[in-house]
């Protein structure tokens, strides 16, 4: 497994290539990129920040769970922090597996779960102001402060 938080551009092609092994029949890549607008409001750039120690632990745990839950062989999970421009990769997930079904399923589960519980935040800078993205409500089992 390769689990990283980085501040430089993510080379998705290289990461998708280096995971491959002889027993794999499928490599599934999710490349999350910066969109040029949010609900029609034009985005200039995004600033990502993380609770880094916890985010890395969570990313490691999710990758281990994905391997166990879906029976895939290996996972690469890389998230970029700092300022990102439109079109740049913020998160890259690569799943290698003997068969495609498990690779698709694990990849989908990883991005959906990451976005709900890995402590990373983004601030959106628009032409006319900046806001912290709303974020998803926490799953009930970890929503500690919502009383």
């Amino acid at each position: 497994m390769k689990i990283e938080l980085v501040r430089d551009p993510i080379d998705g092609g290289a990461l998708a290539e280096e995971i491959k092994a002889g027993s794999d029949g499928a490599v599934c890549v999710f490349d999350g990129i910066v969109r040029d607008n949010t609900r029609g409001r034009r985005t200039l750039h995004l600033d990502y920040e993380a609770y880094e120690e916890m985010a890395l632990t969570q990313m490691q745990q999710l990758s281990e769970q994905a391997i166990t839950k879906f029976g895939v062989r290996d996972v690469t999970l890389v998230h970029r922090l700092g300022r990102l421009l439109v079109g740049e990769t913020s998160v890259l997930i690569v799943v290698a597996s003997a068969h495609r079904g498990a690779a698709f399923d694990a990849c989908r589960w990883l991005i959906d779960t990451l976005k709900k519980q890995v402590p990373i935040w983004k601030k959106e800078q628009f032409v006319d102001g900046a806001v912290w993205a709303d974020g998803e409500p926490f799953p009930e089992e970890i929503a500690g402060a919502a009383q």
């Binding site: 609770y51 120690e53 916890m54 632990t57 519980q117 402590p119 974020g135 409500p137 926490f138 970890i142 929503a143 500690g144 402060a145 919502a146 009383q147």
Partner: peptide, 16 residues
């Protein structure tokens, strides 16, 4: 914001 937040103790999610 507080009402929508979660709490982590020593980098693990924690309940009240």
């Amino acid at each position: 914001l507080l009402a929508a937040s979660a709490v982590a103790v020593n980098q693990e999610y924690a309940l009240p």
